[in-house]
Design a protein around this nucleic acid. Structure first.
Length: 202
DNA sequence: TAGGCCATCTGGTCCT
DNA sequence: AGGACCAGATGGCCTA
């Protein structure tokens, strides 16, 4: 909830755009990059030609601003969606905890879903076994104990407690922590192919 | 100070 | 033609 959903940006890095006024072409953002320099050096056109050119430039500029604005909005929507995802993720949230990075959020969400699916399957199997034979032992002898408790933990998941038994300084960074009593969701403990950008390289 | 993360701009591509 | 999506580039902020 404390996320930056409402604010235009979560980081101070974003050059505060004047929402209503002139959003584009920020004062401190002269983008000299990419050879998008003036297209026409002015091929000897007289006054009329120059005015026409200026008009075209203005039009192109306006079009650019529009595209930029749309793109900005698109990215903000994406970030909102990510914030929504963070809100339901099992990691401690609060002012003292840094926000999960985007990539960590996505990876964690995937593992979370996988774990929930697995737990759900176990629960269903348990239920069907219970219904099948009332007198029989709910758990076959040789079978490894299903993580029923863990599943229950997930199904009735509460915001993680303060205590953090051990930390994972892995791909998910210092933000994510392992919690006692809950199967780990991080990519260290789950077979999730970590993208190259996350592989420990230093 | 280096590296991580991020927001933004921009050009390209694809789709409607 | 216009919009959505994507990826590369750039520069700012923050932390170890």
């Amino acid at each position: 909830m404390d996320s930056d959903v409402a604010s235009p940006s979560s980081r101070a890095s974003s050059p505060e755009l004047e929402e209503a006024g002139s959003p584009e072409l920020l004062p401190g953002a002269p983008r000299p990059q990419q050879g998008s320099g003036e297209p026409g050096p002015g091929g000897g056109t007289p006054r009329a030609g120059r005015e026409e050119q200026a008009g075209e430039q203005q039009q192109a500029q306006a079009q650019r601003l529009k595209v930029n604005s749309r793109e900005r909005r698109r990215m903000q929507d994406l970030n909102q969606a990510l914030d929504g995802l963070r809100e339901v993720m099992p990691y401690s949230q609060g002012p003292a905890v840094r926000k999960l990075s985007k990539i960590a959020t996505v990876l964690l969400a995937r593992n979370y879903i996988l774990t929930l699916s697995s737990s759900l399957q176990d629960m269903r199997r348990l239920l069907s076994e219970l219904h099948a034979g009332p007198r029989s032992h709910p758990l076959p002898q040789g079978r490894p104990m299903p993580p029923a408790a863990a599943a229950a933990g997930y199904l009735g998941f509460r915001p993680a407690p303060r205590e953090t038994p051990r930390t994972a300084a892995g791909p998910l960074g210092p933000v994510y922590r392992h919690y006692s009593g809950l199967p780990c969701l991080c990519s260290l403990c789950q077979p999730v192919p970590a993208p190259s950008c996350l592989r420990a390289s230093k």
